[in-house]
Design a protein around this nucleic acid. Sequence first.
RNA 1: GGGCGUGUAGCUCAGCGGGAGAGCACUGCAUUGACAUUGCAGGGGUCACAAGUUCAAUCCUUGUCACGCCCACCA
Length: 927
Amino acid sequence: MLEKTYDAKAVEPKIAKLWEDADAFRAGAGAADGAEPFAIVIPPPNVTGSLHMGHALNNTLQDIMVRFERMRGKNVLWQPGMDHAGIATQMVVERQLMEKQIHRRDLSREEFIDKVWEWKAESGGMIFNQLKRLGASCDWSRERFTMDEGLSKAVIEVFVTLYKQGLIYKDKRLVSWDPKLQTAISDIEVEQLEVNGNLWHFRYPIEGQKFDPENPKTFITVATTRPETMLGDTGVAVHPDDARYRHLVGKNVILPLVGRKIRVVADAYSDPEKGTGAVKITPAHDFNDFDVGKRHKLHAINIMTTEAALNLRDNEDFLEGLDSSSELENTLDTLHGQDRFAARKRVVEMMEAGGFLEKVESHKHAVPHGDRGGVPIEPFLTDQWYVNAAELAKPAIASVREGRTNFVPKNWEKTYFDWMENIQPWTISRQLWWGHQIPAWYGPDGRIFVEKTEEEALSAAVEYYLALEGPWKAWVEDQLENYEPGKILTRDEDVLDTWFSSALWPFSTLGWPDHTPELKTYYQTDVLVTGFDIIFFWVARMMMMGLHFMDEEPFHTVYVHALVRDKNGAKMSKSKGNVIDPLDLIDEYGADALRFTLSIMAAQGRDVKLDPARIAGYRNFGTKLWNATRFAEMNGVARNDDLWLGDAKLTINRWILTELTRATREITEGITAFRFNDAAGAAYRFVWNLFCDWYLELLKPVFMGDDEAAKAESQAVAAFVLDEIYKLLHPFMPFMTEELWAHTAGNGRERPTLICHAAWPQPSFQDVEAAAEINWLVDLVSGIRSVRAEMNVPPAAIAPLVMVGANAATRERLVRHESAIKRLARVGDITHAAGAPKGSAQIVVNEATVCLPLGSLIDLKAEAQRLQKEVAKVTEEIARILKKLSNEKFVANAKEDVVAAERQKLTEFQEAQDKLQAALSRLRDAD
RNA sequence: GGGCGUGUAGCUCAGCGGGAGAGCACUGCAUUGACAUUGCAGGGGUCACAAGUUCAAUCCUUGUCACGCCCACCA
């Protein structure tokens, strides 16, 4: 016998072990040879990660599909794995070292990387155990890590291939530089944050004129939000059509504090409406200025260190062309080595002291911040590696355009196109240690050799240099003979963006570049399930790489689910501290309840704002099913294979089998259409509102009666339906259903398979007559209950039931369901009469009037009011329909079945109105 | 500035060209046999606003208002 409530805490670990011992989720487990494959790759969580609500939703939805397809007999692979998360992981380990007073640079690169691996072995991958607690049915034996040997091999292969195809290249240009992490980052890792800043107006004296703060003709005023960059200014731009400044174009102005002569140029970039209409140009420290500088051949002077401190004193670029002066010396003394924010303050002070500060306005503007480091990024002129994303994007755009890969919901395709069609070169090099080191080696003259291994690079280099005439040939020969050949090349220090390896995930995890059986079977994978926040980071790049290297899209469908947000609609994030821990919810309500809640809330196109009260509600749903099973058990419900369910005779059995067919169809269609909320909702309604509320209640008289054949039939049908319910709910509530499946196997018997390998229901039973009869019964019982409640009839009071105007079919139904009606509606003898007895409450069900002679219990006035309300409601409906039907255009234009349905409704309402009126007048007569 | 989305019951949200729904909350009643994590009954909505299309609009179109997110940019 089951306990009264389901104990998730006890059952979940037990079932998890059952699955593990049975190796139940191994690729292809439970499937027949030659079964159709179905594959999903997990969005690899960060190795530093722990389960958050986004993961919980994401993996619940994947698990629903995976369990569903496994039960449908497919050869299923759910490929798990983790991402090495370059920056995030390096930060974690560095922080840990700092606690021991060790700085990363105190260690060698190799030592540091060893530390990271140590950290991973100890603390990494926590999230897998958490995913198991959620019930995720991944093939855990196939776990992959983006830094493991196989995947690293794929990364190298891809890099070398793309380089040789000219799709990866090295370039010197402005990048978004994170001064805290001291690495370049790609443009999508930059987020714009609103900041309250200032707009400083600076006067730049015009060459050849004596600067006079009182005389605007002697200077030009520029406005800036970043005074500290002025030392790198190499021009001032004005709009070509701006009459105010036209006379200055081509002239020089003198950069204060420094004395550099810089040119005034005419460029349409300058907006006369903004600031003063004249803008200072700092090509090395601003993306727009960089372009302007290029157009006008202005120098780009980098005045900062990698930590974003001013670098002036020994900076040849900066000092070039400057005359030494006391002013310059003062500037160097004051500003050299200053952090950019301290420098800002001092520059402003110095400008003010010199009379060059015209005014300061407060100014709200967006400042780009690194999404990991959290500090403003610095546009920085460096050598970096790039992927020609625009080229790789072309086939990726075409795939979606031509429907080979589809987004669900479809509107995300626009976001995808917008980004892909304006895609920028992808900065892939990172100045970190943790990651895939770029397979590029530099020769003595700086020449680049990109090869899979150092040996190959070396032989390529030797071949190259020995074929060369000139000094390097001799140098290389010398190295080869007398020194260390290994010294000929030095390897690029940089590692690759984490997303570079994630982009290969759908094929690298299957063994590529080797031609493995897994790759052949499971690529192309089926569905990618993800939140929209990583469409750019991940989905787009998988499309590019998958198409380029596999010639086939990595997946045919991208299901983009909602983001789980906090109650203010903000994205949950650690830094905001608004994270709800799904493990807490699992502890409190059980994994099944959390999963069911997430799936029933996962409607397409809307974010999920989680209300814990709902989880409690769906936990109760589990309890309901649990107790239904308990009830069944107490009444001898067990499978009876000798009984052919198609032969079931009892209407209620034929009805519930019909409803089961419908529910199965709804659930199946819901899952296949990614409408998980519809599927979960259909299951919920079937189990609770039909199976428990009506079917089991209607069975009680059968179980308590003495018709053994009816009992046996009902026991068999109930057992069958329960089994189907367990299966239908399994993708949503795997733990409880697996437990119930085992528990209800039958006396001493065992189930032939775990429920996770049981065949998905495919019922076809249908009996519309039975459905109509039970609907009538439900109407009858509900009607009686309703009137009793409104009349305040005590539950204990049993009134006789008198039917007026019942036809033959109804009379038969009343006989068939007599005991159920008596029990559920709490009525006594059922009789027929020509008219309503005095003091009756009356309700209309189909053609008959149902009378409850309540005698002294009835409040005639209240009953009259109740009936009048009913009449009013029906009259209103009739008026509405009549208006419609008397409209010629409606009859002429509306579809035939719509018109027919309205006519049918009209007839029914009119009949009901007649009967209600009759009941009302009888009541008045009696009064 | 561009894009996407959302305004439906007190709350959280489904739905959708043809009789306004769910869960929770609320009100009344019910507790000796599946379940109080329950049952039965009930109250509660100008479906943001306006115009249009249509025989018919909560649903389609346009506009307005409010809110959210993404992208770009602001010297």
